[in-house]
């Protein structure tokens, strides 16, 4: 489909707050990006009018109970059917930070057997409390997450994290088994790495929250639902990069662009 016909739905709940930079990134790529309150989506039930669904970061409903839990339950109750239908059509769903938490809480991720009734993983309290700082993550996917087909293999993106809960964990009694399953399904997409590109190996600082296996982002077995804790949208422009005054060239794009660019290119060619 034509780029200018691509429609992105960014759903916001009370407390969503990374919508501005996410909308800006998509619009810069020449697609239509609508920022819509969840209540309106619940009323209109028009999910399928869109080609890409994005759940931006923030603190939906204050993250009371558990991060993303309230928004997840509300969505499940009000538009659960439409959500499943949207995912089944193969269209991309992206959850960033709080959006990732919502996707885990709704059972779409990791989604070993399709959508699960209960969360199969958790994005738990981070080892060092809330932090906002820059990290590096490597694209370790082997092609299953098709929307990232235009991000080169092993490509490293620098971008910020900003969360107090985002430590990806699996049930401890089945952890290794489930990890193997994630690998078998090619579901692990982003892992935290050190400055030299090697994996953080659980070491704090490069792995900012104690995430199991340095996991920063995963997709579902079908590859069209993607969640990640870091914020590529905050690294979209050159002047947002941490050392742009040294590197010069603030007009150029930052590390995060390739992420959004790939998603748009994928939809452009696939649908």
């Amino acid at each position: 489909m034509k780029r200018e016909d691509i429609k992105v739905l960014l759903m916001r709940a009370p407390g969503t707050n990374c919508d501005l930079e996410t909308v800006r990134a998509f619009r810069d790529l020449g697609v239509q990006a609508d920022l819509v309150h969840v209540q309106k989506v619940f009323r209109d039930k028009n999910l399928l009018d869109y080609d890409i669904l994005v759940l931006p970061g923030g603190f939906s409903y204050g993250d009371y109970v558990r991060s993303g839990a309230i928004q997840a339950k509300e969505m499940e109750y009000r538009i659960g059917k439409e959500m499943v239908e949207f995912v089944d059509t193969g269209r991309p769903v992206i959850g960033i930070c709080n959006g990732f938490q919502v996707l885990v809480e709704t059972g779409f991720l990791p989604g070993f057997e399709g959508r699960s009734q209960y969360p199969e993983a958790a994005l738990a309290n981070s080892s060092h409390g809330y932090q906002n700082r820059w990290i590096r993550m490597k694209n370790v996917g082997k092609g299953n997450c098709t929307m990232l087909a235009h991000v080169p293999e092993d490509h490293v993106i620098s971008c910020p994290i900003a969360h107090g809960e985002g430590r990806f964990i699996l049930p401890s009694d089945r952890r290794e088994k489930l990890l193997q399953r994630l690998y078998d399904n090619d579901q692990i997409v982003w892992r935290y790495v050190k400055a030299d590109g090697s994996f953080a190996d659980g070491e704090w600082w490069d792995n900012p929250n104690g995430a199991f296996h340095d996991i920063a982002g995963i997709c579902n077995p079908e590859g069209n639902v993607l969640g990640l804790m870091p914020h590529p949208e905050r690294a979209y422009y050159g002047y947002l990069m941490p050392e742009w005054t040294k590197a010069g060239a603030p007009e150029t794009y930052g590390d995060g662009r390739v992420f959004f660019d790939s998603i748009v290119k994928y939809v452009e060619s696939k649908f």
Partner: peptide, 22 residues
């Protein structure tokens, strides 16, 4: 400083802490 989000909205061009060395 790290306890506070310094760059939500994507408009912080010069941040409170400079570069990787902060």
């Amino acid at each position: 400083v790290r306890r506070y989000d310094q760059e939500v909205k994507g408009q912080t061009v010069v941040k409170p802490l400079q570069g990787w060395k902060a």
